[in-house]
């Protein structure tokens, strides 16, 4: 079984503050345990399939200015800069 510590570490990497650890961790453990079923699918030799398109279907390189002042939609800014918490 995937350890509680490992799950807590992942939560940290995903920037999730777990206050009530235990309930989430147990549930995630159960889900991961269920995912073990994938080991029995016998699919090792399969290739990944993807959607494809042609180069000419893509957008032409053209500058079109955005018609709204997007900054006004944003939450917090100072002068014209977006404000984020300090880095260190």
């Amino acid at each position: 079984m995937v350890s509680e510590e490992e799950i807590s570490n992942v939560a940290k990497l995903m920037k999730i503050d777990l206050e009530d650890h235990s309930s989430h961790i147990k549930r995630v453990q159960k889900m991961l345990e269920y995912f073990d079923i994938l080991d029995r699918a016998n699919v090792e030799s399969e290739e990944i399939t993807v959607q494809e398109t042609d180069l000419d279907k893509l957008r032409d390189d053209k500058y079109v200015p955005y018609d709204k002042d997007l900054l006004k939609f944003l939450k917090s800014y100072q002068e014209k800069y977006v404000k984020a918490p300090k880095l260190n």
Binding site: P65, L70, L74
Partner: peptide, 28 residues
């Protein structure tokens, strides 16, 4: 002329801060 995934200007140098942005490049 334009950015990699949207139609904002590729050369951003002459813009006032945060005026060469759109929902795509802002990840709205």
């Amino acid at each position: 002329e334009s950015k990699l995934f949207c139609s904002c200007r590729a050369d951003y140098r002459e813009f006032q801060p945060n005026t060469n942005i759109c929902p795509v490049c802002m990840g709205i």
